[in-house]
Amino acid sequence: MTAFPLRVGGLSWQVRLRGTVLTLAGLLLLGLLMALNMRLGDIDMSLAEVVRATFDPADAGHFVVMELRLPRALTGALVGGALALSGAIIQSIARNPLASPEILGVTTGASVAVVAGVVLSGSAYGGASGLFSAVGIPALALLGGLVGAVTVYALAWRRGLDGYRLVLVGIGVAAVFTNVKYWLLTVGDVNDTGRAMVWISGSLNGRGWEHVVPVALALAVLVPLTLLGTRSLAALRFGDDTVTALGVRMNLSRALMIFAAVLLAAVATASAGPIAFVALAAPQIALRLARCPQPPLLSSAVIGAVLTAGADLIARTAFSPLELPVGIVTAVLGAPYLIHLIWRARK
């Protein structure tokens, strides 16, 4: 891959051309999709109307744009970016293209907690609605995700953290969580099951500013941190012996990067549910487009955001007025594209 040096005074960076172009193009596409997301809905607006509605509180569309469409579009993009970044980190550390936050117990832990909340509270108690749905579910998801991650981490830690052992422990813990989730789905009322399924699939329906803020904060803090860690992550790809030889403080960098990945996935999942496949597919798509050996972090995040924003557009408008959970569309949209990329690379 072509890289050129960028030097300012005594500082120097390596800028990778293809990755940079990819990131910029992705951001452009993301802007386009967000604009479309703001325009289309029950009431279609022109771009000029959207702009007017945004800045003029007296405008009839102000509420729709500022309170409904903008926060939802932002939640989608941010959550997609956070999940993809988390996936890129985990795939680099596990040195395994099949790894995703599921391996760290985050998304599965969150799913169990939420399904338990929805199914066990049951329709008899008014079901999952009102305050419970607005505050309780994200809180449950966050708690479940963190508990899941701590479980995996604690069980995998043994005089240091071995990437391979982490993956194996992750498989075991994920199996427990997933099957408990399946079981919970069978004991509840079929209506509650349906509601829980929507959440497990990942949905952006009715997401407001309260969903935007936590993800935005997490990204604002963690993106710079993880980017600083990129170089040690590149070194982590080699075997443990090589890593130490390259002068990376292995356990510390690995622990910090995993911690960042956990937080990103947990916050994202709390906001929108475990949106399927983004964390796994976006890094793989990014590394194929950027033609580099391991998932590029920033490009992965941008591609995750694009994938989620695009999927949400389709989820909202394709079967209007019926709305699909966005996670269903990310899988149906992202999978063929990834297959296309794999296919192209084989020729």
């Binding site: 079929v190 399927a276 149906v332």
Partner: peptide, 28 residues
């Protein structure tokens, strides 16, 4: 290639299955 293609196809089919069961209670 096989593993990735398999994961992608699985995710695709899972998406379709979820859509169906969300729309049809009996299937769910």
């Amino acid at each position: 290639t096989l593993a990735l293609a398999g994961t992608a196809v699985s995710a695709f089919l899972y998406g379709l299955t979820s859509a169906i069961v969300l729309l049809d209670e009996q299937a769910m």
